[in-house]
Structure formats: structure tokens, C-alpha cells
């Protein structure tokens, strides 16, 4: 496994902090949208764009790029903030989120912003499309990889299980599914609404390689992605343990932040906390 140097780690953590600030600013500007899941996937999106994906912001149509699909489209703010911070479009454009005429639709629309790879929002449809893209790579003898970000509650959708079965059948080792395992959904805890555990066992029995990571630790995320890349003959799932609302103390662990934005005062507070966190990252040697 390649090891993460302290400098590289610091760089990625600072980026993730920028992404979180972008999420807060865009949600405040929009006046609606999904805070908890967006914030908790900031580290993973940063790791992917910063150190895992083969991609080129100047060439979103590069045929050999790795594909990154966001299945749970409601956390679009994290993807938009990550894309902006990695050069896909100007950071200021984040303030157009959810507004009339914006490319940054409330839920991702590929036709408006092609680098999104697909359109999502209706849950449970991403992995199946990822299976199609991974199969296309095999048919075309291409070596690009396909990454699909899913939420935990999407595992209540039947189509997701059809996709899991299909990926197992075709031994799609170029396909990695990353689960935002934050244990929340709209009506409460996933384990109260519709229990998902033991989730890892379910993937294993569908012939997947099961990996886990701490979704807020760069080294852990990158290590899991590296292992996934080196798996042969099987699709891989990374169960990422995340804390909803991560980085903003008053949101952390609270499912009621699933689908609402901060107000001005709450956003100010969040940005203060994130700036302080940034100072701590910089001070760390």
C-alpha cells in the first residue's frame, strides 16, 4: 500500500475543509437542500478527486476517465463543492445552487453539467448504471474504473439489490461501491425505519469484496480505495463509517439535518467552526 505523507494528508484535509465551507455557503444561498449527508461525504469526495480518480477537469469527456456516479443525488452540494474546488468550475458558481437557470440543479442533472456522469435524486438507481458502465469498460477492453457513491437508505430500494446481484454475476472488479454509512434517513435511524444490518454480510453473500473505512480519516479512505483497486474477480464495496453533519458540531449525529439548510446565524457559526478547524490543520506538523 502506498503511504500517505504528512504533507499530502494536510493538503487533502485543507481541501476537505474548503469543500465543507463551500457546502455551507451554497446551502445558505439556496435556502433549501441537504446538509447532513453532504457534510459527511466531504472527506471521501476530496480523497476521490484529489488522490484516487483518474480525471481531468479540463476534459470531462475524456473517454478513459474513471467514472464517479453519485447515486444519492440529494447530497449534490458536496459533489458540486468538490468539483468546484478541483477546478471543474469557479467556486463562486456554488452560490447559484438550486436557483432558476443554474447548472447546479437541486439534484444532479448530467445534461446541464456533463461531468456528473448521470442524473440522480430518485434513490437506488446509481449502482445499476455503474454496473452498465463497468460492463462497457470490459466490453471495450478499457481500464477505467467506476465508483458509485450510495447512501445507506438506498439499500432499501429493490433495484440496488438487483444491481448487486448483477455486479457479482459479471465479476466486475472495475466497480467500487462506496456506502455513506451514517445510519440516518429522513424518518430517523436506518435501523428503526428498516434495519440494514448486517450490511457487510449481505454484500459478501452477493459475491462482493467487502472493505471498511473511517470516512473522516484520509489514510483510512485511501487505504480502502487502494485495496479496492487491487481486488480481482469481484466488485468491491467500501462501507464508510461517517457522522452525519461532520464538521459542524450542532449538526453532527442529528438526523433532522438530513434535508434542511443552515440559516444565516447557523451558517456563520458553522463557518467559524470550520475556520477554526482549518487553523488546527495548519498548525499540525
Amino acid at each position: 500500500m502506498q503511504s500517505l505523507t504528512p504533507e499530502r494528508r494536510k493538503e487533502l484535509e485543507l481541501k476537505a475543509n474548503d469543500v465543507r465551507q463551500g457546502i455551507i455557503r451554497s446551502l445558505l444561498s439556496a435556502g433549501s437542500g441537504h446538509s447532513a449527508g453532504s457534510l459527511d461525504m466531504a472527506d471521501i469526495f476530496t480523497a476521490l478527486y484529489g488522490a484516487v480518480l483518474r480525471h481531468d477537469p479540463a476534459r470531462p469527456d475524456w473517454p478513459d476517465r474513471d467514472r464517479l456516479l453519485l447515486s444519492c443525488g440529494h447530497i449534490a452540494p458536496v459533489r458540486y463543492a468538490a468539483m468546484a474546488n478541483f477546478g471543474y468550475f469557479p467556486v463562486e458558481e456554488l452560490l447559484t445552487l438550486r436557483k432558476f437557470g443554474s447548472r447546479l440543479q437541486g439534484h444532479p442533472e448530467r445534461v446541464k453539467l456533463p461531468a456528473l456522469e448521470s442524473t440522480s435524486g430518485p434513490l437506488g438507481e446509481g449502482l445499476a448504471q455503474g454496473v452498465g458502465m463497468a460492463l462497457a469498460a470490459k466490453l471495450d477492453q478499457k481500464d477505467y474504473r467506476v465508483y458509485v457513491i450510495t447512501s445507506d437508505a438506498e439499500h432499501q430500494c429493490g433495484l440496488h439489490w438487483e444491481a448487486m446481484m448483477t455486479a457479482g454475476k459479471f465479476k466486475l472488479d472495475n466497480l467500487t461501491c462506496i456506502i455513506d454509512r451514517n445510519f440516518i434517513q429522513i424518518d430517523g435511524s436506518t435501523e428503526d425505519v428498516m434495519p440494514l444490518e448486517p450490511l457487510a454480510e449481505k454484500y459478501r453473500s452477493f459475491n462482493w469484496e467487502v472493505l471498511e473505512c473511517d470516512g473522516h480519516d484520509m489514510a483510512s479512505i485511501l487505504d480502502a480505495c487502494e485495496r479496492a483497486k487491487h481486488t480481482t474477480g469481484k466488485p468491491q464495496v467500501i462501507v464508510a463509517k461517517t457522522i452525519p453533519g461532520k464538521g459542524v458540531s450542532y449538526m453532527e449525529g442529528d438526523y433532522t439535518w438530513h434535508g434542511k439548510p443552515p440559516n444565516q446565524q447557523q451558517a456563520d457559526e458553522a463557518l467559524r467552526e470550520l475556520s477554526a478547524a482549518r487553523e488546527r490543520i495548519l498548525a499540525h506538523v
Binding site: 435556502g31 437542500g33 438550486r98 439534484h107 442533472e109 442524473t119 440522480s120 435524486g121
Partner: peptide, 8 residues
Amino acid sequence: VGPDGATH
């Protein structure tokens, strides 16, 4: 429905 967009 408003800001959620076309998917919703």
C-alpha cells in the same frame, strides 16, 4: 416543488 428540480 421548486428548488429540488426536475427529478422531483
